[in-house]
Amino acid sequence: MTIKKKPNYNFIIGSILTGLIVALALVSLVYTPYDPDAMDAANKFAGISLKHPMGCDNFGRDIFSRVMEGTKNTLFVALGTVAIGTVFGILLGAFTGYFGGILDEILMRINDAIFAFPSILLALVIVSLLGSGKYNVMIALGIAFIPSFARIVRAEFLKNRELDYVKSARLMGAGSLRIMFVHILPNTFSVLASSVMIGFNNAVLAEAGMSFLGIGVQPPDASLGRMLSEAQTYLFSTPSYAFFPGLVIILMVLGFSLLSEGISQKSV
């Protein structure tokens, strides 16, 4: 018997939005209508036209090209952030959750302490130590993200290690590492998938926020957050300068949120 399910709109719309944004970033790797950094004094603040679908900025740079470039950089930073957060979060969560004991106590207290700081504040501190630039932002945000992933993974490992299938695996002579990463880890993927999406979401916002404050991605690299901050001055004269990067951020965040919702709906 198959129960007819309502289509998972969250998942569908989320996938489409995310797909479009990722496609935009991928295309920017090989093609942008103009060189995103090429200044053209003649086109300073050029309005929306067929040649410049989003207009031009204060240096006469094509905003559409810069949005593409910025989307790429923002996604790249988000990807790196989430990768660092997930990999270390999984390692930390797996070992503490599976073995428990005193190591778990110590690491989790440290984790709680880090978790207590807003991640953007923590990232600010780390960036001020490492210096700005997109790789340092990635590392800083990545570190700030580890605790939340570690918690989720630890909780799943705590739950799973008591289950009979783990006992059977141990009984077949499987070692701890094999049990942790071959048997238990795949069981955490559905929970992890939805938090990875939330992670992307937060990473995009955090990167945009940091770049907006001038400590994230550095010029000449375009970033959506940077564009927003540069556009502030011209908000009334050239609203399109701020509008389009802002729109892409919103669509990106919306896409990831819907996808995350959709994934957790799917796995129920």
């Binding site: 289950l163 059977s168 002579g173 795949p186 069981n187």
Partner: peptide
């Protein structure tokens, strides 16, 4: 373990890994 001594449990629902295919689980040992 697994080689000379094996064990099966009461709950066939929980003693198999829900996300792995039967084949992989039978071959584990």
């Amino acid at each position: 373990q697994g080689n000379d001594i094996s064990m099966i449990f009461q709950e066939p629902m929980t003693s198999l890994n829900p996300v792995k295919k039967i084949g992989a689980q039978v071959e584990e040992s």
